[in-house]
Write a protein that binds this DNA or RNA. Structure first.
Length: 296
DNA sequence: TGCATTTAACCCTGGGACAT
DNA sequence: ATGTCCCAGGGTTAAATGCA
């Protein structure tokens, strides 16, 4: 679609939402209503100055204004993950397939994009700008969990219980196979949690597009980690400390050790090489590099 | 070698459920 | 009311690495 038409339609949409006539908006903007009409219908060009005035009159910051105008297209294109980035040789939890992951990743990206498109279309900010960063990652983690529930054999566990997901069809020692999900924006971070449990873990790294607020998965890694109480634990206890200044107590936390992080990195099942430069990551392992590893 | 960039390590935040 | 167990994570910076 022609850019003038796209922006023009968005101007009309915002104007109607604000219940302004063309004449009223034109007066606020300092242009004639004929000029505004021409812009709304994609006939006339417009300068940056006029766009700024329009955005101001419509109470929508210019960056969000531009993003909003183009957001509907971003919800229908460019939000599916690149299949070439999957590494099918990497071992996955029992019953999990890369096709399940692909569907869940696309569903997650799509949900966030649809929320953002609605927000931007009404002149609001994209979703991540309303939410503190760590909590937004929590949101992504929750949406991704639900998408895996819908698109894989791994189903919701009970609320706030470990692990996040279980595969009831695969039982080991009477217990269903479990999968713990973490999501983060920090590339290659490994795991940081508050339980340090044993079992399958999935770390999903994503990026946030600046203007649209949409998310894009760039790295998924799987590993079976040893719990903090095991002899060769993949977690290190960080402890519960009191901030002397605020009195705030830090929640008990476990970080994955470099050995645990190496296991996870070996299990990189999806990696966008344009966003993740793993070649400089450190490793700590006892045995040989597995054939499926990105380091092999 | 010196500067720029990236990573690993460490410190930090919010909340709820439940037993005592 | 308090403590302990869970849930969800990010931000900063010294050190390591890349590169001209």
């Amino acid at each position: 679609m022609d850019t003038k038409v796209t922006i023009g339609r968005f101007i009309r949409k915002l104007r109607e939402q604000k219940q302004l006539t063309q004449e009223q908006l034109a007066t606020k903007t300092g242009i004639t209503y004929q000029h505004l009409s021409g812009m709304e219908n994609g006939r006339e060009n417009f300068t940056i100055d006029i766009l700024e005035s329009l955005a101001r009159a419509l109470v929508c910051p210019l960056p969000q204004f531009i993003a909003g105008a183009f957001a509907p297209e971003s919800t229908t294109s460019g939000i599916t993950v690149n299949r070439d980035y999957f590494r099918p040789q990497v071992p996955l939890p029992p019953g999990m397939k890369t096709s399940h992951l692909e569907a869940a990743m696309n569903a997650t990206q799509s949900i966030v994009a649809r929320i953002n498109a609605n927000l931007l279309a009404s002149g609001a900010k994209p979703l991540p700008e309303y939410i503190q960063g760590n909590n937004f990652s929590g949101l992504v983690s929750n949406v991704f969990c639900d998408a895996l529930n819908d698109h894989s054999p791994y189903k919701h566990n009970s609320h706030q219980a470990y692990p996040d997901l279980i595969n009831p069809a695969v039982k080991k020692g009477g217990k269903p196979a479990g999968l713990e999900i973490k999501s983060t924006i920090q590339i290659g971070k490994g795991g940081e949690s508050h339980n340090g449990h044993s079992g399958w873990h999935l770390i999903a790294c994503f990026q946030i597009e600046p203007l649209t607020g949409n998310v894009r998965f760039i790295h998924l890694m799987f590993a079976v980690l040893n719990g903090h109480s095991q002899s060769e634990a993949d977690w290190t206890y960080v402890g519960s400390k009191v901030n002397a200044a605020t009195g705030s107590r830090r929640t008990e936390t476990y970080n994955t050790t470099l050995a645990g992080v190496t296991k996870l990195r070996d299990g990189s099942v999806f990696l966008d090489p344009t966003a993740v430069n793993f070649k400089r990551w450190r490793q700590k392992r006892t045995g040989a590099v597995p054939a499926y590893s990105i380091f092999a």
